[in-house]
Amino acid sequence: MPERSAAVDAHPAAEGGAAVAAALRILQSFPTPRPTTNPYLVMLAQALRAEPDLEVLNFSWKTALLGRYDVFHVHWPEIMVTGGTLPKRTVRQALFLLLLARLRLTRTPIVRTLHNIGLPDGLNRVERVLLKLFERRTALVITLNTLTPVPPTVPSATILHGHYRDWYGKYPQSGAVPGRFGYTGLIRRYKGVEALAAAFLDTAGLEPGLSLLIGGSPSSDGLTEGLRELGGRDGRMVLDLRFLPDADFVTAISSSELVVFPYVFMHNSGGVLAALSLGRPALVPDNEVNRQLAAEVGPGWIHFFTGAPTAEVLLEALRAVRAAGLPEAPDLSARNWDHAAADHRAAYRRAVDSLGGRPAR
């Protein structure tokens, strides 16, 4: 893995030696936000718009192909080449090729945030070929932690995922229900929520006053049916299987004494940061990324399991939380959005400079 380079701002020299930053127009790869848009994307755009020398555009194919911008910042490129139907995929893929051609002709750099390790499962050969072409055109990658592997020939910058304190702070919090474990967020197979429900069933009779709240929208009918079957076995389990609006999300997280993330694999998780932002400790898979986060936020806030969660793991973590004597809030000072915005601005300028520092077109 190559040595990481920090994002360093580059400003053209002005008359008399002063540094002047020309404004940059940044096209983000997500459209105008909707209620279901990932809050990370919305908070990032808000923070960038607060920078005096940045202008942020939301994505549309018309803007991407005909608009004027200096940098194209992409988060999940697979969204641009996939679709629910063959006609939709075909149109997107044709537009994607036109966009790559436009970016190459205008020498507009692509900046990509690596939210995940590798591409998602289920992509076909054409989609993978298109994404390989995209990777070759990428001028700079942004990682959310120092352990994300990066392409060996592409410059990179690590910019920490910002916190959610401001985002969720406008909603009233619930007091933690003693003995309540919680999982809230999108429910996908790799997140292990069924394994959490099964482990919780095994706590029956081991300790009084326990409960489990699972909130979020399952990604398949099979997951929904499996969770409802497990929940029907134990009245201590509460299921709210729908997309939770922010106010309900805050209530669900803040009512939990311990928020559990029973993932089979975890690398970056906005959900963990959301729980911490709401002042709730988290139980997560034991890996180096999560160990770094635990050292950052302070003792007692992050607890670990290996393999799959079990009844014993849940009870042991709950006892550890109660024994920790947590301060009022974890330390999230490194994740202020003004820091993230400044680091993104510097990364954008590096990308522009790498292709000659051309003006918006």
Score class of each variant (00 low, 15 high):
Phe305Lys: 01
Ala13Ser: 14
Leu223Cys: 09
Thr138Met: 13
Gly179Ser: 09
Asp246His: 09
Leu86Phe: 12
Phe72Cys: 04
Val289Ser: 06
Leu27Ile: 03
Arg25Ser: 08
Glu328Trp: 04
Asp234Gly: 07
Ser255Pro: 06
Val91Ile: 14
Phe59Cys: 05
His163Asp: 15
Val56Lys: 05
Arg189Leu: 06
Tyr183Phe: 15
Val111Met: 07
Val20Asn: 00
Tyr164Arg: 04
Leu201Ala: 11
Arg89Trp: 06
Leu278Gln: 09
Leu86Gly: 00
Met43Arg: 14
Ala157His: 09
Gly205His: 04
Val129Asp: 09
Arg319Leu: 09
Leu119Glu: 15
Ala198Tyr: 04
Asp221Arg: 14
Ala317Pro: 03
Arg102Thr: 12
Tyr190Ile: 09
Asp70Leu: 05
Asp248Tyr: 00
Pro281Glu: 11
Ala6Ser: 11
Leu140Thr: 03
Gly182Glu: 02
Pro218Cys: 02
Leu54Asp: 01
Arg107Thr: 03
Thr148Asn: 09
Arg335Ser: 08
Val264Arg: 13
Pro299Ala: 05
Gly279Leu: 10
Ala23Asp: 14
Val126Pro: 00
Ala294Tyr: 06
Ser219Trp: 03
Gly84Asn: 12
Asn38His: 08
His267Gln: 14
Phe243Asn: 02
Ala346Ser: 13
Thr36Ile: 08
Arg125Asp: 12
Val154Asp: 10
Ser333Phe: 05
Leu131Gln: 14
Val177Arg: 15
Lys132Asn: 14
Thr90Arg: 12
Pro309Cys: 02
Ala340Glu: 11
Pro152Arg: 14
Ser220Ala: 14
Ala247Glu: 15
Arg4Ser: 06
Phe134Cys: 13
Arg137Val: 01
